[in-house]
Amino acid sequence: MSDEKHPEMCWGGYYVVYNVLLLLTILTFAFSYVHLGPHAVNIAVALVIAAVQGSLGLFFMMGMRHEDRLSKGVFLFCACLFTIAVMVTLTDFVFLGTYSVSHQVAQVMHGLADAAVGQ
C-alpha cells in the first residue's frame, strides 16, 4: 500500500515496542495489588494502560500509521465505537458506589417500613 512511501520499521524498533508492551503488562499487574482509592480509579488506570498498549500494537506492530486514509478510517471508526461503548457503560460502573448506596438505603427504608407495619 504505502510501503514504497514509508520506510519499514526495523528489528530494533519492534524490539523497543515489545519491551514497552512487556513493561506495561508488569505495570498493570503491579497496579492490581495497589489500592489507588475507589475501585473505579484502579479500573481507569488499568484501562488507560491497556489503551496505550493497544495503540502501540496498532500503530507500530500492525503498521496502522502507514495505511491509507480509508483503511485507517474504517478501523479507527470501529475502535471509536468500542471506546464510546466502553466509556458509556463504564460511566455506570464509576458511579457504582452511588448505585450501591442507593440500593442499601432502599433496603434500609424497606426494613424500617416493615418494622413500622409490624408495630
Binding site: D68, V74, F75, C78, L81, T89, D92, F93
Partner: peptide, 26 residues
C-alpha cells in the same frame, strides 16, 4: 483494505461482549 474491514468487524464483535460485561458488573 479488506483485512482492515474484517478486523473492524471483529472489534465490533468484541465490543458487544465488553459492553454487556461492564453493564452486568455495574
Amino acid at each position: 483494505f479488506g483485512m482492515w474491514l474484517f478486523l473492524g468487524s471483529e472489534v465490533m464483535f468484541f465490543t458487544g461482549f465488553f459492553a454487556a460485561y461492564i453493564v452486568i458488573r455495574s
